[in-house]
Amino acid sequence: MTDQEDDLPAAAFPSPLPLPWYARPAARAWSCAAPPPDARAFHTTLPGYAPTALHELPALAAKLAVDRVFVKDESARFGLPAFKALGASWAIDRILALAAYRTPGATDTRTLRFVTATDGNHGRAVARMARQLGRRVHVFVPVGVHPAAVAAIEGEGAEVTAVAGSYDAAVHDARAAAAAPDAVLVQDMAWDGYEEIPALVVEGYATLFAEIDAQLDAVGAEPPALVAVPVGVGSLAQAAVTHYRSGSSAGRRGGRGTGAALLSVEPVGAACVLASLRAGRLTHVPTGATVMAGLNCGTPSTLAWPVLRDGLDAAVAVTDADSTSAVRELAELGVSSGPCGAASLAGVRAALTGTGSAERRAALGVGPDATVVLINTEGAAANPGL
């Protein structure tokens, strides 16, 4: 345990083991406004759109002592190995529409170029959408992004600049580059003064959770008791909380009881959301190397933070060994996953098994009749160096 756990608020339930863990069951009583439906309608018009697979894994349900386990498989979203295209496509579409609207008399925004920072998947998604629209894009990548991932971004026609520092350092350099009058920053992380575009990215992610609702209903499954989401800066988790804590989800199990418990999962070396929850305020943490490169973020998005603070049920941090073990287990069950995507399984395994799991299950409201959904945010192709 870290010394921080001595300062946990009364609502938190720390694990009796040295597991990086935080829980706040009162989150299920919190509610928020539903996301607008526009993004999902937009996505259905894009070439190649189809809901990504929702795999049921009975063997994994037996291991976790729950009724059903489903994996939302984002390994092939719009031909890319991760979910990020949902946010990038919607944000870029809205940026172009708003740019024309805000410029008096403007009918042509073809000179506008896009800038972003990335640990891999977001940058490639922005580059793919920009290429399809005939736009220029400049992508900043931090230390630790595998050369093959950089090559994939360059293969989309992007200019790529390597930054000798962390993800936060890459964001800093991208912000500076986007100050040019013909450039716009397309980031999924928000900070004071930069929130409109990250909000659009989060709106785009809502499509993923709406698909899950429809897919569970189609197979006669109960709404989930637990949803596990890998976390970097927290934007996907923000979309999850917004979905399940609003009227946009049928998230009441069997029309009764409480809504889904939402679990965020981070690398132990970059657990900025967990640290923020423990501190009760948005907190920066130093980051190091991790195989979960896409989650290697030291500062939560300011837009995501208040939503996660009030709406997350629990947070856990997992090791690289936990994640790579989960990658292998999912592969054996026929699911392609990278270490970021498999983090959701690693986090659920840490929460629901081992010493102290009875207390953690109680905090999450997960019993033997529970349906669990794991968000597999990326496929193995997103991590050629693993």
Rank of each mutant, 00 (worst) to 15 (best):
L8V: 07
P9K: 03
L17M: 14
P18Y: 02
P20N: 15
R24H: 14
A29W: 03
W30F: 12
G48K: 02
A62E: 15
R68H: 13
F70R: 05
F70P: 03
E74F: 04
F78K: 10
I92N: 10
A97C: 06
R102F: 14
T116Q: 02
T116F: 08
A117K: 01
N121P: 10
G123T: 08
V126D: 06
A130D: 08
R136T: 11
V139Q: 01
V143W: 04
G144K: 12
P147L: 08
A152L: 04
G155K: 07
A174P: 01
A178N: 10
A180P: 04
D182V: 01
V184W: 00
W191N: 06
E195F: 10
Y205C: 05
L208G: 05
Q215A: 14
D217T: 15
A221P: 07
P230R: 12
G232F: 01
V233M: 01
V233R: 12
L236Y: 10
A240W: 06
G269P: 12
A271F: 03
C272Q: 05
A279H: 09
H284W: 04
G288A: 05
V291N: 10
G294S: 12
L295R: 08
L308K: 06
A315R: 08
D320T: 11
R328T: 15
S336Q: 12
S337Q: 02
G338S: 04
S344C: 07
A350P: 00
T353P: 13
T355H: 13
G356P: 00
S357M: 06
I375D: 06
N376R: 02
P384N: 13
G385N: 03
